[in-house]
Amino acid sequence: MGFFDDKQDWLEIVFRNYPPENRRAAVMPLLRKVQQEEGYVSEERIREIAELIGTTPTQVRGVMSFYSYYQAVPTGKYHLQVCATLSCKLAGAEELWDALRAELGIGPGEVTPDGLFSIQKVECLGACHVGPVVQVNDEPYVECVTKERLKALLEGLRAGKRLEEIELPGPCGHHVREEEA
C-alpha cells in the first residue's frame, strides 16, 4: 500500500496551497510528511511522490538530497539534531556532541540498537542566545542543553515521555522581553 493512499484529504489540503499547474511545489511538504512518519525517505516513497506531483523520481531525489532535514537512511525514534555553528559552539556544542556520541555509542547515520536514537550535526538553528540547542525530530527546540539538561532529556525520552512532558533542570532565559531589560 502506498504511503499516501489513506491521506487523500491531507494531500488535497497541501495541493491547495499551490497553483494547480504547479503541483511539484508540494514536493517539500510531501517529503516532510514521509520523513516525519517513517523517519527517512525510501526509494519507494520517492517514486510515490514523483507520481503524485507529476515529475520524475530523479527530480524528487535531487530536491530531497539538497536539504539537511530529509534522510535517506532510517533514523531512530528520536533523531537528535545538534546545532554546531558558532554561537552554540561558544556555548559548548562540540563537547555536547562528543558527549552525546559517547553516551549513545553511535555516529551520524547510525541508530542505537534499541532503535531509539540517531544523531546529526546541523547548522545554525536560530537560537543563538540559548545554546547549545538540540532539536528532536520535528519538535520545538530543546535549549540551553547543559550536561544536566541533556541527561534529563535522554532519560525522559528513554522513559517514553513526550518532549513537552520532560522537565529540564536549571534556567534558560529568553531575554527577549521588555520587562526583563
Binding site: 526509494e43 520517492i46 517514486r47 514523483a50 515529475t55 520524475t56 523520481p57 530523479t58 527530480q59 524528487v60 531525489r61 535531487g62 538530497s65 539538497f66
Partner: peptide, 18 residues
C-alpha cells in the same frame, strides 16, 4: 527530467533514479 544534481555544495554529483 532524468538527470539531476544530487546532494549539494562540494558533494554535488550527477545522478539519476531512472
Amino acid at each position: 527530467e532524468v538527470l539531476d544534481f544530487i546532494e549539494r555544495g562540494v558533494h554535488t554529483f550527477i545522478g539519476s533514479e531512472e
